[in-house]
Amino acid sequence: MSKVAVVTGASTGIGRAVALGLLKAGYRVALAARRQDALDETAQMAGANSVNALPMATDVASPDGVNALFAALKAKWGRCDLLFNNAGMGVQGYLLEDLPVEKWLEVVNVNLTGSFLCAQQAFRMMKEQTPQGGRIINNGSISAHTPRPDSVAYTATKHAITGLTKSLILDGRKYNISAGQIDIGNAATNMTARMQKGVKQPNGEMMVEATMDVQNVANAVLFMDSVTPEANVPFLTVKASLMPWEGRG
Rank of each mutant, 00 (worst) to 15 (best):
F123I: 02
L164V: 09
S151T: 14
L39V: 08
A32F: 04
Q129F: 10
R28E: 15
A72T: 10
V60H: 07
W104F: 14
M56V: 09
I161M: 11
H159C: 07
V29M: 09
L82M: 12
P63R: 01
K166E: 15
L96E: 14
A87R: 10
F70N: 06
F70T: 03
N49V: 00
L99G: 08
D64H: 03
G47H: 07
H159S: 00
Q120H: 08
N52F: 10
N86P: 06
R135E: 15
V66S: 03
K24F: 03
K158D: 04
Q120I: 02
L164F: 12
G26D: 05
Q92D: 15
G163P: 01
S115M: 07
C80A: 13
V152S: 15
A160Y: 08
M125C: 04
T146P: 00
V91W: 13
D37C: 00
L73A: 03
K127F: 11
T162G: 10
N52E: 13
G65W: 04
P131E: 06
A144E: 11
P149S: 01
M89T: 15
A153Q: 07
A75Q: 15
P55N: 11
L112H: 04
A30P: 03
N109F: 07
G88E: 15
M126F: 10
G140I: 09
K76L: 10
M45G: 00
M45N: 06
L23P: 00
A153F: 04
P149K: 01
N52A: 13
K103S: 12
L95Y: 14
L99M: 12
I142R: 11
A71D: 14
A43K: 07
A156P: 01
Q120P: 00
K166L: 14
R28M: 10
T113C: 05
A156H: 05
L105W: 12
G134Q: 06
N86A: 08
S151P: 01
A48S: 13
L73I: 10
V51Y: 13
N49K: 12
R28L: 04
G133N: 08
L54W: 08
L96S: 14
Q44H: 12
G93C: 11
M45A: 15
E41I: 00
N49A: 15
C118V: 02
F116T: 01
G163Q: 06
T42Q: 10
G163Y: 03
A53E: 11
